[in-house]
Write a protein that binds this DNA or RNA. Sequence first.
DNA 1: GCAATTCTGTGAGCACTGCTCTTGTTTTTC
DNA 2: GAAAAACAAGAGCAGTGCTCACAGAATTGC
Lengths: 253, 253
Amino acid sequence: MSATSAKSARPRRSHAQARAEMREGILRVGGELLEKDGPAGLSVREIARGLDVASSAIYRHVSSRDDLLTLLLEDAFTDLADRVDAALADASTQGGAGKAALAALAGAMRGWAIEQPQRWALVYGSPVPGYAAPAERTTGPGTRVMARFMEILVGGESASGSSVQEGAPSGGPGSVLASAPGEGYSAVLAAGAGELGVDASPALVAASVLAWTGLVGLISAQLFGQLGADIAPHGDEMLAQWVDVTARAFALR
Amino acid sequence: MSATSAKSARPRRSHAQARAEMREGILRVGGELLEKDGPAGLSVREIARGLDVASSAIYRHVSSRDDLLTLLLEDAFTDLADRVDAALADASTQGGAGKAALAALAGAMRGWAIEQPQRWALVYGSPVPGYAAPAERTTGPGTRVMARFMEILVGGESASGSSVQEGAPSGGPGSVLASAPGEGYSAVLAAGAGELGVDASPALVAASVLAWTGLVGLISAQLFGQLGADIAPHGDEMLAQWVDVTARAFALR
DNA sequence: GCAATTCTGTGAGCACTGCTCTTGTTTTTC
DNA sequence: GAAAAACAAGAGCAGTGCTCACAGAATTGC
């Protein structure tokens, strides 16, 4: 037994530094544990061990396990949104818009999901039971990706006056547009589109929402193995087909 | 303290009866707890308390907590499939086929999901971490609903020789059919369709799979509140729109 | 510059969990 | 009826989230 005790003496650091380091450490170790064992396997004590600290110390920085989950949720949302933004920026330099942008977004989402399935599950999977993510802390980063998605489908940023040709896909066989949404639903859609900075008819927004839930559902189904093990190797192709169909339905090129 | 001890004397019953009663009780109380607290909140001890029995007794009938989850998963799958079948049978008496059948199936799924969100999460949500549902015990009941779905979209039972008019939706703008699936993917699709008792071209099967994940994704998004609280009251309408669009894409009427 | 205060981290402890193992009782089998 | 098999009880282990009184270090006020 050496003179230095088992618990190595912590270096002198300011409270601000301590806060930052602890927070970063919790996020890092917590993220690793989350990816390894999933939300249910996430343990405050295990994080404390990973940081070589008493478990009670964690509670100085995180009020509860749920709070910890919220932290990781925010982190995951932001990480995903950053990744999608990067992919879109990349595609955009190559003159990518319309279908190319859609493919870039979908590919980035799926890639991120495959690399960190547990994070994806935390974000778009079933909510951790008994725990409702506080909306005010998650809707912000949570809607970033969806906003991008809508922009693409609806045909560009609202700034440019290039209105979508809503005449083309409207009622004909194979159109994405169902019957016009009712009054109340239209109002909600308009409000939502406004928050996302998207300008389009309620019918088009409604169709985009369906497309969005379809994309998320597709990725989730692949990730969670709901379609059987045999189909797993063809996830790329499935996604490509989804992009094809969706781009065609929304008249993207 | 009365003569009858706190733990009421169990009635004399045969081992077979005991097994059946216990299993039924575990399923019942477990189901209630699952619906109340979600998978993570499911506790063997709590079930034991609910049955007024020692916790260790549960392990005579269930080998582990994961096994318990599998049991509840099977139960949920079967329950959902029964419900969907009933709805389809009901629709069928009214001459319901094609779009009407699709609407009945989708409505039954969503209705079931809303009544028992935790069960839905167990079935189609993110898998419980660290727990992989044993495929051999879940794929059976798990594919029943999907088989019905495919039958409807692909245009009737394989017995009747009425082949789908695959000419109509093939390539034109707004078609559900993307480019033809590659060789490997086609093989997997064909095999899957065979298991489900569905006969259709790989391209049509591929499109049906996308539609399936879309439906599941839509219901999950509604249930898990991924689209914000405001949109929740319009779930019916969203689903109706999804039915509209999908029926049109697959040329159902 | 030094005391008072505030903040960080400790370790014991409570109530809970899944699960195992030994013990006693009851039903089935021969 | 005796032997064997199955069932259930209860204690106990290792783990969990979380709280609380306490010790030491950093910050603040004068």
